[in-house]
Amino acid sequence: MSNMMTEIMAFLLTISGWVLTASTVATDYWKVSSVDGTVITTATFWSNLWKTCVTDSTGVSNCKDFPSMLALDGYIQVCRGLMIAAVCLGFFGATLALVGMKCTKIGGSETTKARIASVAGFNFILNGLCSLAACSLYAHRITSEFFDPLFVAQKFELGAALFIGWGGSVLCILGGLIFCLSLTEGLSLRHAERSYNRDASFISIHQRHNPSTNLQKDPQDQGGTSRQFGRNAYV
């Protein structure tokens, strides 16, 4: 029961992390910068992996999609690939986790389910690492430009999407590590089954080659039984 509850907790952690990671892809505020003019005029610049926008004080936003993938900066292309890979790995990990969990009725034997759960754990760990690498790379670019005194263009700060992505990555990695422990448990169970089968086969072979061992009795017991039978024969 405790192992089942542990797997359920790991499943909840990984699914929550995967949802956060997937929502980060479509979140707007990967980087944010505010420009204050007069008391009335205030503009907010923000960007994500797909577009860059500006919002004025009235709430009107003007956005511009990135025109060409080949014309993008290298770090944006890498972040796109890592985030899409993270979402796909999380999807396959969730499917395998449903099959490999002990509380489900599919997946085969306990050893097979443990292996499937461990594969799901590796998928979630890779999911968390991909998302963590993408958010960290994007944040490194923002911070390096912000603290560079020779960078004269618009400077940005870390957006909310990066923190959401980091949180989802941590949840996926923790849940994936818990799922990977199912592999150790499955291997130990399989080793115990093999040991039991080997001992049982050894005993059966020994009994087949030495059938007289089960029929032999102690001579003292036989003599005592005959004497006892002789004393009580005519009672």
Rank of each mutant, 00 (worst) to 15 (best):
N3M: 13
T6S: 13
I8Y: 14
F11W: 12
I15W: 14
I15K: 12
S16Q: 08
G17Y: 13
W18Y: 10
T24Y: 01
A26T: 13
T27K: 07
D28Y: 12
W30R: 05
D36S: 12
G37L: 07
G37F: 12
T38K: 09
T38R: 13
F45C: 04
N48P: 01
T55S: 08
T58R: 05
T58Y: 03
T58G: 11
T58S: 07
V60G: 01
S61K: 03
N62V: 06
N62M: 06
K64Y: 09
K64D: 06
K64E: 12
D65Y: 03
M69I: 06
A71R: 01
L72E: 11
Y75H: 05
Q77I: 05
V78W: 02
R80L: 06
G81K: 01
M83I: 02
A85L: 05
A85D: 08
C88L: 14
G93Y: 06
G93V: 05
L96R: 00
L96Y: 02
V99H: 03
V99Q: 04
K105W: 13
K105A: 09
I106R: 07
I106Y: 07
E110P: 00
T112S: 08
K113H: 04
A114R: 04
R115A: 06
G121D: 08
G121I: 09
N127Q: 11
L132W: 03
L132R: 00
A133Q: 02
A134G: 03
C135S: 06
S136A: 10
S136Q: 04
S136R: 01
S136V: 06
L137C: 04
L137R: 01
A139T: 10
R141L: 08
I142T: 08
T143F: 10
E145I: 05
E145T: 06
F146Y: 15
F147P: 06
V152R: 15
A153T: 14
Q154R: 15
Q154E: 15
Q154D: 10
G159W: 11
A161H: 02
L162D: 04
L162C: 09
G165S: 05
G165E: 05
G165K: 07
W166V: 13
W166M: 11
G168T: 11
S169R: 04
V170E: 14
L171E: 14
C172A: 15
L174V: 15
L174S: 14
G175V: 11
G176Q: 10
L177A: 14
F179Q: 15
L181C: 13
S182R: 08
L189V: 04
L189W: 02
L189D: 11
H191E: 11
H191C: 03
A192I: 03
E193T: 03
S195D: 09
D199R: 06
D199K: 10
I205N: 09
P211S: 08
S212R: 11
T213I: 11
N214W: 07
T225N: 09
T225M: 12
Q228V: 02
Q228L: 10
Q228A: 12
F229V: 02
F229N: 10
G230M: 13
Y234T: 07
V235H: 08
